[in-house]
Design a protein around this nucleic acid. Structure first.
Length: 413
DNA sequence: ATGTTC
């Protein structure tokens, strides 16, 4: 994908499909450490004029109510049984516990959950790291952003997505936190020990892999599904927090899910390859699934137009909503964001966090964070131009732009 | 991305 950059084992912005029936492998490095990291977009019944006078209050409350940064707890004080339900049922478990509505799930990839039996493929350590982080933002490039629909590029599709010019939206970017990270580490280690038994030779241990149809492959995929469920429940819990914050600041209004989609996941999918249907294990790492109109896996509400694709820019630049295209020849995948142009280390040398925050504020973007000092890691300078990335995807026939969103408030981890 | 090195 055009937002490609260096990553662990596989690049971020990469799509790799393996043929399951012919011994194709699954590789944790092809998914990434932050399993099921992804974006959820919320539409609101509010307009820019409704939130501008209360923006400071909205952002302060959001910062107060959303645990962010490392090890700061989660919204849901979950017990072992709650965690188990989350690992097995994802966003559905969060909704059943009162953190949202059944309608939310309809507008999530996979209905918000993948079937996952939680055996010993999810280690006790992974569960211990996850239980206190249910409903937390994390750090790095994770954020909650309040945006204004700046431009509608495809009116018909935008209408179906529930988007109109001047409308307030909220974008949530987070993943599976320490739990997903631990699952990735655990399974890379397990697979490395088993390489010889599968006759796999690798140029680099970061490419650790096992056949999809093998003990190690199946164990990873079931743990990965549990982590994906955690990530989706996490975004559902943050949705609940956003709804509460809006209600406290602005009173009654409606906040709906536009879509929720992962950009770090491997999925078993059926695709047309060389004239026949084959079962593939499609790894998307920093790449977003983008189903075209008419695809059977789409929820009914989007079946006629195609899947919403949620593409965040960098902090302080626009984000996009795209839609899947039938001309997509990348196993129905497209970009996932602007993509880094600088390493975190190089980005830290571009300037001072306090100054960056001030400069964004001058552009009408209120930034709240617990760590101003690390803000330059996420400086817009450190990222590619999202408008160009989106154009490249359109030119390649991967996806088509539907709406451009401009930020007014950002909560960073 | 991450109890930023088990």
């Amino acid at each position: 994908m055009p937002d490609v950059h260096w990553g662990y084992g596989f690049p971020i912005g990469g799509v790799a499909a393996t043929n399951v029936e012919r011994g194709g492998v699954v590789s944790p490095g092809g998914v990434g450490f932050d399993i099921s990291c992804g974006i959820r977009l919320l539409s609101t019944t509010f307009d820019e004029g409704d939130i501008q006078p209360r923006l400071t209050r909205l952002m302060t409350t959001l910062k107060r109510d959303v645990p962010a940064g490392g090890g700061r707890g989660g919204i849901w004080r979950a017990n072992d049984r709650d965690l188990r339900r989350v690992l097995e049922h994802g966003a559905r478990a969060a909704v059943e516990a009162g953190y949202g509505f059944t309608e939310d799930l309809e507008r999530c990839e996979d209905g918000g959950w993948l079937p996952a039996g939680v055996g010993d493929a999810v280690s006790e350590r992974a569960k211990a790291r996850g239980i206190g982080e249910l409903g937390s933002l994390g750090s790095g490039n994770h954020f909650i952003e309040l945006q204004i629909v700046d431009r509608i590029l495809d009116p018909q599709v935008a209408q179906r997505f529930g988007l109109r010019e001047g409308q307030v939206t909220a974008m949530i970017h987070t993943g599976s936190r320490g739990l997903g990270h631990q699952i990735c580490s655990d399974h890379v280690r397990e697979m490395l020990k088993a390489l010889e038994s599968y006759h796999i030779e690798l140029p680099d241990p970061q490419l650790a892999a096992a056949p999809v149809r093998s003990t190690h492959g199946e164990r990873y995929l079931s743990a990965m599904a549990a982590a994906a469920n955690f990530g989706r429940a996490n975004r559902q819990l943050l949705t609940w927090a956003v709804r509460r914050v809006f209600e406290a600041a602005l009173g009654r209004g409606q906040i709906s899910v536009v879509y929720d989609v992962s950009h770090n996941l491997a999925k078993l999918e059926s695709h047309q390859v060389g004239g026949s249907r084959v079962e593939l294990c499609v790894h998307r790492k920093g790449a977003t699934r983008a189903l075209p109109a008419g695809h059977p896996d789409l929820p009914g509400v989007y079946s006629e137009v195609g899947q919403p694709v949620l593409v965040p820019g960098s902090m302080g630049t626009a984000s996009y909503v795209l839609v899947g295209e039938s001309s997509n020849d990348a196993f129905f995948s497209t970009c996932h964001g602007a993509g880094r142009a600088m390493s975190r280390h190089a980005a830290m040398r571009t300037g001072d966090g306090v100054e960056l925050r001030r400069s964004l504020q001058r552009q009408g973007i209120l930034v709240e964070t617990r760590s101003v000092a690390s803000l330059p890691e996420e400086s817009p300078e450190a990222y590619k131009d999202v408008d160009e990335v989106v154009r490249a995807c359109e030119g390649a026939g991967l996806s088509r732009p539907v709406a451009r969103l401009r930020p007014v408030g950002v909560l960073k981890g």
